[in-house]
Design a protein around this nucleic acid. Sequence first.
DNA 1: ACCTGAACACCGTTCAAGT
DNA 2: ACCTGAACACCGTTCAAGT
Lengths: 235, 235
Amino acid sequence: MSAASQSRPLRADAARNRQLLLDAAAMIFAEHGMQASVAQIARQAGIAKGTVFRHFPTKDDLVAAIVCDQLDYLSAAGTALSDAADPTAALLEFMTSVVELQTRDRSLCQAAVGIFQDNQEIQACADRLTKITEILTERARLQGGIRGDVTGQDVILLLRGVYQAAAPLSDRQPTLWRRFLAVVFEGLRSPAAYPLPLPAPDLFRSPLGDGQSPPGARAPTSLQIRDDRGNSEEP
Amino acid sequence: MSAASQSRPLRADAARNRQLLLDAAAMIFAEHGMQASVAQIARQAGIAKGTVFRHFPTKDDLVAAIVCDQLDYLSAAGTALSDAADPTAALLEFMTSVVELQTRDRSLCQAAVGIFQDNQEIQACADRLTKITEILTERARLQGGIRGDVTGQDVILLLRGVYQAAAPLSDRQPTLWRRFLAVVFEGLRSPAAYPLPLPAPDLFRSPLGDGQSPPGARAPTSLQIRDDRGNSEEP
DNA sequence: ACCTGAACACCGTTCAAGT
DNA sequence: ACCTGAACACCGTTCAAGT
């Protein structure tokens, strides 16, 4: 379902092997994270190691394919909530789903850091997810449930943070992320006591801000105590 | 300075090599993260690869030694702030320092997940840091600056989250973490709109809660929308 | 005691040889 | 076209041989 509509259709055995490979990879990455070996996945799928690299030129590409499926799943979950009666509650429910999936699949969050940057396919999926998150965020913002200077980008990245905050204890306290999600959501709530420092993050094309600029950008430095020479990009 | 006071002193050349090794490792880990190869570090230090494993039985132990130094640095920074005039501002300044160090040294945060669990040395350092963080947190709490159900454990783990949230964009927007730190700190502020779900995390010995129990534990489920069957530990 | 470098079992990746 | 498995350059780790 991920990158199927390319060139001409695969040969029967190739298509079969590809599916076996994807299934095996999804299973093993979910359990052991993306540091699981290609050999292990190939064994699980019942194909030769070399075949893996025929379907995906690099291990990262294989991870990317799996991650894309999950990002799309989250995009769908977000879309389903995009006309909910209570936008703020919908946003929280969406955020819950995102962290929940991360805890179920260890590779999702790991992959985000390493591959996000240059992988084309994952970029497209991430963009879709960002877009729907932006919609949910804006609805909650217009409802007055969350502060005015928060963007969908903020939300997505913060959800990565929520999962990672709880990750060190995930085996001993597997639902601890709910606590941290509550803290973060509390921080997003209206009314805002202090404006956020720095402009909102921008995952998209341009180095910083083009097209529709994010709403709450360029707030004064607020409560930052140490010297923060504001929004200097590259040093 | 880390684990020096063990058994009898090292031979002159061994002590010298150990220091060269630690310096090289600190430099290279900071720059490339802990996935930098042992060979690279040995080369930088000007010693043989085998010598690395004579001083540190495993690569993780080497990482742990470096990380411990940094945890101790943060503990010292926290101690220096433990009698500041404004406890809430002190806590925020401390939190800023912690995230700042993580952005300067990529290995710190990475190591926390993988090694925290079973490494003795790192446990001791982390415990010290947790203790001083607890002190700073309690002072801010008593001042009324942050909500009553937040612990030092929460703060430490959330700081990991703040860094990780900003990590995917750290090369393009290197100070973005300040924005996310502001969101999280806002979530910790008083007064609390809703109580936090789940008991506070507990990095220490016991599976859950012994000795001095954390303050705000066992709050009702608050705003969680989806089914959260509360604080069930192992499923 | 400590250092060294060859050796080992792994890893991701490549590619000639098969069907 | 696609699959296979041997081969390659790497990795962390071990250890006999040196001083």
